[in-house]
Design a protein around this nucleic acid. Structure first.
Lengths: 358, 358
DNA sequence: CTGAAAGCGCTTACAG
DNA sequence: CTGAAAGCGCTTACAG
């Protein structure tokens, strides 16, 4: 093995070094290394060998400057840090994105900020400073200022939305189309088949676009199955909020025998506190969580839920974003619906919960 | 308000535009906008006003190229995606990092890959392409190839390690010093005070440096408290692994009355499956989790654990990294130890678990 | 097929 | 205090 200069700390070679060593011009090096025509195969091979030998890597900044492309995309998560604790979701979503981005040599910029206004500032910085070629938005709010921003600035963007959610025209948007209806049909069918007639739902905050979609889908599906729309109480995704909403429902004139929760934390809190709520699960109250997690799997009884492939969702979002950034084809993709996973909280015949304290 | 050109999609102004509008040279613009001497206050004010009016932001690529600094740091998480699902940890760590980085105008590059070898490749790319000025490493392994890499290439790096963990000389390392001993002293004291004499620990994989530190600390602390080192069974952080290890311990000649788990998932699995394990918690078996999470809080009984401020850890790591990158002072910081949080799995007097099924 | 040259948007000595 | 110029490391027409 020839001795390389690679070991010298901080001494990173440039195409200039390669050109000198290989005895060609910088331009030829660039052509050779980018697989462009303009160099003979022999020269190309020599240049490639030299580049490898020197341990050359393209400078992202230089490339970005001359190509007018950042070589990176951004994900600005807008969520309070206390709710994040309850969100194993994102790392898997990011792992999915990564699997697509890595193939294209793109980096991922991540920002975690408490609210959408802070996220708007981050996006404005990223775009203004040309740090990203596009962004992925999650947890869309109703009238989301981030959507207004990416539209105004023309930032390529991937997001998940319902087919009926109105998105601004002219924006560089790639949509993953979500459908909550199909998921609710599965859930409601399952519960009705078990004899439930008094259903209810504990929703997440109304500021989220997906909450609004679920509101509409829930009303339609329950009306269709039961003759009238089943009630909804709004909560805030926290265990305290989920418990309060459940108490409210149970204290009503027609207490539900089955409740569907918009996330896993609220459902898990209710299952954990079933004694203080004065119900048996699932005998008195069936419970379904809107998201799957360890929380659902390790609860006693384990919690029936709507499960989705989060890694695949991340990969899809990244793929869609790249299509917009690179000006490719489609730009709309239909997300796979949540899949109902039946566990102990809706199946009386399922393994019984361990006896308390023994 | 004067009409700006900001609205024109894609038309992002440069210092050249500012120079033209303000009637000065590009150099003056640069000096003015970077708060450097060389321009009169009057000119500086005019240039600033023009920059604001045009909606100018510095091009990260151009700045990076001329300053030879990326303006970003990287975090390469090396963990299997299935274990990630059980890791709400990282998003909070990142939020903590962000709070420090944002102040300095630095971006965060994130990569989530399955193992350390893949992480090494990511780091090599980031550094070779000058995408980052430094990196934060987490979940250090024994003989971690990432540490070898950052040493070899001279990459500024922040990581958490024990005071006895040998780190290579000459590296640009900023250390957060961890001590597991103090945490174990608290746990063991607590358990012994409740009459426990037969303790055991279910450890995480031995490949992790922190597992090795815990092994040493556990042996010392239990020997000191009980006269001999309490047993350890190695598991893999998963619920199945935690259950298997616990079965092994319970089937032994001297089954433990209290078990300390290296993470939350294994502890939660054991609490959930206590019936099938044939024990009451905490009467027959006290349980302590090595990390806090919703899983611990929502278990029945709620799980006693070692709790830490993950957001603060993230902020500390970012701060230390910046010191190395900017060539500032210290570079060593002592991490706050985990704090013991006593809940139902170690306190017989605590609120009883809800009765099974109601 | 090959090379000299301009340009991307900044920074920074260096003369005036 | 101010401006012309070179340079950071690439890409890309444009002549040879």
């Amino acid at each position: 093995m020839p001795r390389t200069t690679e070991g010298a700390v901080g001494a990173r070679p440039t195409i200039r070094d390669i050109a000198r060593v290989a005895g060609v011009s910088k331009a030829s090096v660039s052509y050779a290394l980018n697989d462009l025509p303009g160099v003979s195969e022999e020269t190309r091979a020599r240049i490639r060998a030299t580049a490898t030998e020197l341990g050359w890597r393209p400078s992202a900044a230089a490339r970005s400057l001359s190509r007018a492309r950042a070589g990176a995309v951004g994900l600005a998560v807008a969520r309070d840090v206390h709710l994040l604790e309850e969100e194993p979701y994102y790392m898997r979503f990011i792992a999915g994105m990564e699997s697509v981005l890595a193939r294209e040599g793109l980096s991922l910029l991540l920002s975690v900020v408490p609210d959408v206004d802070a996220a708007v500032e981050v996006l404005r910085d990223w775009w203004g400073e040309r740090r990203v070629d596009g962004v992925v938005l999650t947890d869309l709010r109703v009238e989301d200022p981030r959507v207004a921003l990416v539209t105004e600035l023309g930032i390529p963007c991937a997001l998940r939305a319902g087919i009926d959610d109105r998105m601004p025209d002219g924006a560089q948007l790639a949509l993953s189309v979500e459908t909550e209806r199909q998921s609710f049909v599965e859930v409601v069918d399952h519960l009705v088949a078990q004899g439930h007639r008094r259903l209810a739902r504990v929703a997440g905050p109304r500021e989220f676009l997906h909450t609004r979609r679920r509101d509409i889908a829930w009303a339609e599906v329950t009306r269709s199955a039961l003759g009238r729309a089943a009630p909804v109480v709004v909560a805030d995704y926290t265990s305290a909020g989920g418990l309060a909403a459940t108490r409210e429902l149970l204290a009503g004139a027609r207490p539900p025998t089955a409740v569907v929760y918009d996330n896993d934390v609220m459902a898990a809190a209710v299952v954990a506190e079933r004694a203080s709520l004065g119900v048996r699960v699932p005998e008195d109250l069936a419970v379904v969580a809107g998201e799957d997690s360890m929380l659902c799997r390790l609860a006693s009884p384990a919690i029936s839920c709507l499960h989705r492939d989060v890694v695949a969702d991340g990969a899809r979002s990244a793929r869609l974003l790249l299509e917009v950034v690179l000006g490719r084809s489609s730009e709309v993709s239909v997300t796979e619906p949540h899949r109902l996973v039946v566990r102990g909280t809706t199946a009386p015949g399922a393994p019984a919960a361990p006896a308390a304290g023994g």
